[in-house]
Write a protein that binds this DNA or RNA. Structure first.
Lengths: 128, 128
DNA sequence: CGGTTATTTAACTGTATGGTTATTTACAAC
DNA sequence: GTTGTAAATAACCATACAGTTAAATAACCG
């Protein structure tokens, strides 16, 4: 993973941890202190600090500074980037009946191809 | 991360690698052999095999078996799960003007709160 | 200033990850 | 059976990651 051009990987990596997703869910309800964010988890303060650092580095949160407090706030832009990327695959889960037709068609093709193979017709079957 | 109930983490983790995302992009155009999937990358066969294993474990692909071939095919259900989860945050990036208003409001509130702190009113400022 | 609260940083640990080379397994052709 | 191709598995390595405790830093208060 290289640094600048791969925000998507950083975001997805940050989201891949359940603790960090839970932190985002809490921040979706409004900003919160580190202690508040830590409360639901049986883990140490530094562990929470590390999670927040990952989220901050990915641009998913920003950490404020008010006296000794470090209130955190959700930033949604990286989530949008993930959603936009996912949208390039939307046709695959929305055209589910189309996929079934294609599957059956491939099944018939595979049956015919199996016959051809038996007649010594060497062919690479991996391609579309 | 525990096993059964955390498919979302497995999926996001699998997607967090650029090589694996490129593999999915290729499979979006149709199923492909392992060699075809490996072609764009300067990496060894076993490395590709490992990536495919991660994708398979996350349910993002299925690996067929035809003679010595192992044609891979995209499975979109986990992507849909991620998209559905992301949708719970959609209001944050679609109501961007609302967020700006809230930000300005918070700024005024913070200004008033700073005054209160100067008058020795100890208060936790992290909450909403 | 000493004591307290809030949080971060440092150092450490065990496990996972993304890669490698070597080897094995699965299949086809002769 | 031998030889060849396709792919997976085994063993290894360096780095990353998610956690810990100890210590340090930042701020407040009497």
């Amino acid at each position: 993973m290289n640094t600048m051009p791969d925000r998507l990987s950083d975001t997805l990596q940050a989201l891949a941890d359940p603790t960090r997703r839970a932190i985002l869910a809490r921040l979706a309800m409004g900003r919160a202190t580190v202690a508040e964010l830590a409360a639901p988890f049986a883990m140490s303060g530094p562990a929470i600090s590390k999670h927040l650092k990952v989220l901050e580095r990915a641009g998913l949160i920003e950490r404020g500074r008010e006296a000794q407090w470090r209130p955190c706030r959700l930033k949604a832009a990286p989530l949008r980037e993930v959603a936009d990327w996912l949208d390039t695959y939307r046709r695959f889960w929305e055209a589910s009946f189309d996929r079934l037709d294609t599957y059956l068609e491939d099944l018939q093709t595979a049956t015919r191809e199996a016959k051809n193979v038996r007649t010594k017709n060497k062919r690479r079957t991996g391609g579309e």
